[in-house]
């Protein structure tokens, strides 16, 4: 990491450009901007677009590391442009390229469709066998704080695709599921409200699934939310091995916690407002 400076500095941006209507392959274009301390790479790209080149394309939305839209390769490392300060990573040159392992739509815009398709393939939702309860709920599925902790870390994923861009296995095997979907498969399978392990193991336990991961660990290193996909993948492997050996502990689904009985409403809690739509 470059030594942080408190002065304004001229930084040269080497930005990978690609216009599908004109170019046969990407090329690099050079821009120089005056960078103030605290400026993020996204701020720099905005400045270039406003003052030097309006044709520059990149994807962004929230500007605060929540939406996961502005994933880019910054000086060779997948990062979010909005939560990476320029002077934190360079004092001179900054190479900005689109996320690798995805097709380039234009300039810095990657095509994230494969990520979402793979994500959908692992059934990323709670699958519950108690269909009657799901259609006509009588209470809530109970979950203890310890049970919540088992998957909470993995539920912070914002689907930015940085882990997929950093994965060396995905670089040589397009069919490989990649860190994000495999992480999600563990996140839902370990949830005590879920009964979908058997359905998911058919997807993540195959040739291009979790056992192709050899723990390069780069997915966890680049994750902007501290989600740690590498850990989830290893824990999913353990679940699959234990299941294969038929020594996996049977986990019963959360019990349904009904409404409390014999409890009076506290007087300081106001009554709910009347319904605004007609009740059946």
């Amino acid at each position: 990491m470059a030594k942080k400076t408190q002065k304004e500095t001229d930084i040269i941006f080497y930005i990978h450009r690609f216009n599908p209507d004109v170019d046969s392959k990407p090329y690099t274009q050079k821009y120089t901007i005056r960078v103030e301390p605290g400026m993020t790479v996204l701020d720099g790209l905005h400045l270039i677009k406003e003052t030097q080149d309006a044709t520059l394309s990149y994807r962004f939305s929230c500007r605060m590391g929540v939406c996961g839209s502005c994933g880019m390769l910054l000086n060779g490392r997948p990062s979010l442009a909005c939560n990476t300060q320029i002077l934190d990573i360079t004092m001179k040159n900054l190479t900005v390229a689109p996320l690798p392992n995805f097709n380039i739509v234009k300039d810095l815009v990657p095509e994230l469709t494969p990520l979402f398709e793979k994500h959908i393939s692992i059934h990323p939702y709670v699958i519950q066998n108690k269909t009657d309860e799901m259609l006509d709920p009588t209470g809530e599925f109970y979950q203890s704080p310890e049970e919540l902790t088992k998957y909470l870390q993995f539920s912070y994923c914002i689907k930015c695709g940085l882990c997929m861009a950093a994965c060396p296995t995905l670089a040589t095997d397009s069919e490989y599921l990649g860190p994000q979907p495999m992480l999600q498969s563990y996140r839902y399978s370990i949830d005590t409200r879920d009964d979908g392990f058997d359905k998911r193991k058919k997807v993540v336990g195959n040739t291009h699934g979790v056992f192709r991961c050899h723990y390069a660990g780069e997915c966890s290193n680049v994750c902007p939310k501290g989600v740690d996909p590498a850990r989830a993948i290893q824990l999913m492997k353990r679940e699959l091995v234990l299941d294969y050996l038929k020594i996996k502990k049977h986990r019963s689904t959360s019990f349904i916690m009904g409404k409390p009985e014999g409890v009076k409403r506290r007087p300081e809690i106001p009554k709910a407002p009347p319904f605004t739509v007609e009740q059946k």
Partner: peptide
């Protein structure tokens, strides 16, 4: 038209600020 941006074998060899496990 989209440009395939696969790293391939170069993805194994580096080209970034990677960790030791990689």
């Amino acid at each position: 038209k989209k440009y395939p941006n696969k790293l391939g074998i170069i993805g194994w060899l580096g080209g970034g600020r990677w960790g030791i496990e990689r």
